[in-house]
Design a protein around this nucleic acid. Structure first.
Lengths: 243, 243
DNA sequence: GCAAAAGTGTTAATCTTACACCCATGC
DNA sequence: GCATGGGTGTAAGATTAACACTTTTGC
C-alpha cells in the first residue's frame, strides 16, 4: 500500500480550513414579452448594493445537489417547475461577494412569461428588458452577458427557444424572437426554409385569431423540446464538417 | 429604505452553516503523443479509490480566485505555466466525494507533451491514452467525458488545437491530431483547403527532416493562439447563419 | 526501384443568399 | 379599399464532398 494513502476522513480534517467557501447558484431567467427579451430580477437586499437589481440566487444547501439548487430557486420565486435550465459558468473571483468568499454557479433558464403557473412570489421581483440593463449588483452583469452569449450560441443548434413561447405560436412570432435574441433581421422566406428543415415543429392546422391581418398558421414544438438534444449530434456535426 | 435591508455581514452570520462546502478544481490535462490523445492522471491517494486514477485537482484556497486554482495545480504538478485552460462545467452531486461535500469546477487544458518545461513532479503521475480509460476515481470519468465533448465542439471553431503540438508541425501531423480528437478520418485535400481557409497558420518555409518519405512543409500557429478567439466571432457567425 | 507520404484541382451536390408578388383578414 | 402581415419560389453564389495522379525523399 502506498505510504501516503489516507482515508477521506483524515483528508477532510487536514483541509478543514478550506471548507469555508460559500457556494451559491444564480439564475438568469429569460422571458419574452411584447417582442422584447426580458430577465427576471430582484431588488438587492444588501446595503452594499442599495438600489441595484440582482439575479435570483441562493446558497446551495448542504444536503442538496448543485443541479437541484437552481430548480429550487425557480420554484420558490416563480412557482414554476419543469423549466429549461442550463449551467453556464462558475464565477469565483475573490471579492465578488461582500459577505465573504462565495463562488456561484450560473444557470440560465428559459420560461414562458405568460405561463399560468408563473406567480412571482415577492413584490420586489420584476421583469426587465435585457437590452436596457447597464448595471447589476455583484458581478451579475457579467453573468448576464456570459449567459446571453451562451444562449445565442445554443439557440440555432438546439430546439430550446420554444421554452420562451406559449405552447402555440406562429412562425412570425418565432422569427421575431430569434431576431430579438440574435440582434439581427432575418429574411422571412429563408428563415422559414431553415426552420422547416430542422424539423422541430408540428403544424397544428390551426390559425391565429384576433389578429388585424391575415392570420398565420400555428405550430407547436415537437414532443416537448425542453432539453437540448444530446451533444452526440453536435459531435456528429463537427465531424461531418471536416470529413 | 426597504424594511428587510441588511448588511452583508449580517447575511453571512445568518447563513454561517452554509459555509461548509468544499470547492475544488479538477484539471483534465490533454496531451498528444504517438498519434494518441493522452490525459495526465495521478494515482488516487484515498483509501476509497485504491488502485484508481484520478484527475489532478485541489481545493480552492480561501485567498485565491477560482480561475487561478487550475493554473496553480498545473504549475505545481507539471511545472508549466502559460497553458491553455478553459472551464468546462461544475459538478456538485451529493456524495461525489467521500470526504464530505465538495463541489468541483472542471477545467480542461491542452499542453504540448514534449514541452521542455514539462516536468512531472510526482512519481504517481502518468499519461494515459484517453481511449483506454474506462473508470476513474470520484466522478472523474464523467468529467473527462464532458471535457472531451467540449473539446470536440471547440476544436473546429477556435484555434486552440495547436496547444497540443510542438511549435513547428506539418499539416499531416495536424490532420492526424484532428482525426484522433474527432474520431473520424478526414480527406486530405479537403482538410488542407479548410485549414488554409481559416488562416490560422504561418508557413515557415521549412521542411520536415529525418522522415522516411517526402518531407512536408512546416507551419506554426499564427501569433500564439493560446486562447480562444473572442466569442464575438461566434455570435457573428450565428447571426450570419440566419440572416 | 520501392515504400511512404506530400502535394494538388475538378466536378457534382448541397446550402445560403437575395429578392417580389399575390393573399387573407380586420377595420 | 387599405393597412398589415402571411405565404411562397427561383436563380446566383458559396461551400462541401468525393475522388486520383504525380512528386520527393529514405532506404
Amino acid at each position: 500500500m502506498p505510504k501516503s494513502l489516507k482515508t477521506a476522513e483524515i483528508e477532510k480534517i487536514s483541509h478543514i480550513e478550506y471548507f469555508n467557501i460559500g457556494v451559491s447558484v444564480d439564475c438568469v431567467i429569460f422571458g419574452y414579452d411584447n417582442k422584447e427579451l426580458k430577465i427576471l430580477l430582484i431588488k438587492s437586499d444588501l446595503e452594499e448594493f442599495i438600489g441595484l437589481w440582482s439575479l435570483l440566487g441562493d446558497l446551495v444547501r448542504p444536503d442538496e445537489n448543485l443541479e437541484s439548487a437552481p430548480y429550487r430557486v425557480l420554484k420558490e420565486r416563480t412557482g414554476m417547475d419543469d423549466v429549461y435550465l442550463e449551467q453556464v459558468h462558475t464565477f469565483g473571483e475573490l471579492g465578488r461577494h461582500p459577505s465573504g468568499r462565495v463562488i456561484t454557479a450560473a444557470y440560465y433558464s428559459l420560461i414562458n412569461i405568460k405561463h399560468h403557473k408563473l406567480k412571482l412570489t415577492h413584490n420586489e421581483l420584476h421583469w426587465h428588458k435585457v437590452n436596457d440593463i447597464r448595471k447589476l449588483a455583484f458581478d451579475h452583469k457579467r453573468i448576464l452577458d456570459t449567459s446571453l452569449e451562451r444562449l445565442r450560441e445554443q439557440v440555432m443548434e438546439h430546439p430550446i427557444i420554444f421554452n420562451l413561447l406559449p405552447e402555440k405560436f406562429s412562425l412570425r412570432e418565432l422569427q421575431d424572437l430569434y431576431q430579438e435574441i440574435l440582434g439581427v433581421d432575418l429574411d422571412r422566406r429563408n428563415f422559414r426554409k431553415k426552420i422547416a428543415h430542422k424539423d422541430w415543429l408540428i403544424d397544428l392546422d390551426e390559425m391565429e385569431n384576433d389578429v388585424p391581418h391575415r392570420p398565420g398558421k400555428l405550430y407547436k414544438a415537437k414532443t416537448q423540446v425542453r432539453k437540448k438534444q444530446s451533444r452526440r449530434k453536435a459531435n456528429d456535426a463537427a465531424m461531418k464538417d471536416l470529413a
